[in-house]
Nucleic acid binder design. Sequence first.
DNA 1: GTCTATAAGGTGATAGAC
DNA 2: GTCTATCACCTTATAGAC
Lengths: 190, 190
Amino acid sequence: MDQRRTDTREQIQSVALELFAEKGYDRASLREIAERLHVTKAALYYHFRTKDDILASVIEDFLLQLDALVKWAHEQPSDVDVREEVLRRYSALLTGRTAQLARFMREGMAKIPELALGMKIRAHFAALIDVLAGPGEHTEDRLRAQVALAALQLATLSDPDLEPADDETDRRAAALRIATDLVQPSPPAP
Amino acid sequence: MDQRRTDTREQIQSVALELFAEKGYDRASLREIAERLHVTKAALYYHFRTKDDILASVIEDFLLQLDALVKWAHEQPSDVDVREEVLRRYSALLTGRTAQLARFMREGMAKIPELALGMKIRAHFAALIDVLAGPGEHTEDRLRAQVALAALQLATLSDPDLEPADDETDRRAAALRIATDLVQPSPPAP
DNA sequence: GTCTATAAGGTGATAGAC
DNA sequence: GTCTATCACCTTATAGAC
């Protein structure tokens, strides 16, 4: 079942993501992607219509996971415990393949507003921030939620000044603690 | 005194920075910079040897300000009050022209490690983080400091879901409160 | 599904006149 | 200091054979 003769399409996504994370979307060329796969550029065009499509396809996957998370949150009562669980799940999402994606996605978010993909990404994150910020339209609550997500994202980048041993697990756990603190209601219960 | 016939060089820096912030370094072409200034590409090359040089020149200015801030901090006793003041000063730095720079500088930080400029930027920020993290080599303290800086940076980007009225001042103030909380020693004094 | 070959256009950069 | 003209290169993307 689902036994295609090749898995080239997925390999392209994988290698492309790897390269996007390494040097950013613009600096990653189709030529280099093709070379790493030992195929030609033209072969890529059999699987994807454009370079943008490769990026989009891999981002869409992530947005689907985000969707599921937001949907789940909306089915729960809106309290702090749920928000903390949302952070835990989001942190778990930023792992392996997805970590590479998250690493340069903010680049895409910051990019030209008229870019359709950029708007889509922003919209999805806005939904997540709504959940984390809780009710009310307070500037600071929303910003705290944004910062909490940024903290989790920051953890995926390694700090060159630190032992590699600390990396990954420690950093990820620390980030989760920080993020959790950030979404506490204004006067935290003692 | 210092009355040059033209200020083209500074105008180039200004327009370039504007464009870098708009579309990122890679997507900003020399052609477009030249067009906005109503000069030709070749004219740019009279003032700067390369495109990288334009970016470097404008970043160096910022790094000098960072240096001064770190130097000042080192002359003070290493306590929480000083760290809070460092955050206030850093927040003030992220204003106007410099805000545009900060907006896409993380792009440069994330970029290829072998890039000389990227390493320089990272080194300067590492010094600032050392100050904010306080003594000791705890993963979480350093991460908190990183997140605090990220919070201030995030404030410079506008949240499309919010009234423009809230913008700027409110957001900046909220970010400073969040950042300040983040650099408090582990058990905050009551 | 993958190839060779090539189109079409933009890029950073240089030479040399004015 | 700024121009015109041009270079060499690399990019995404397409056409058509195998």
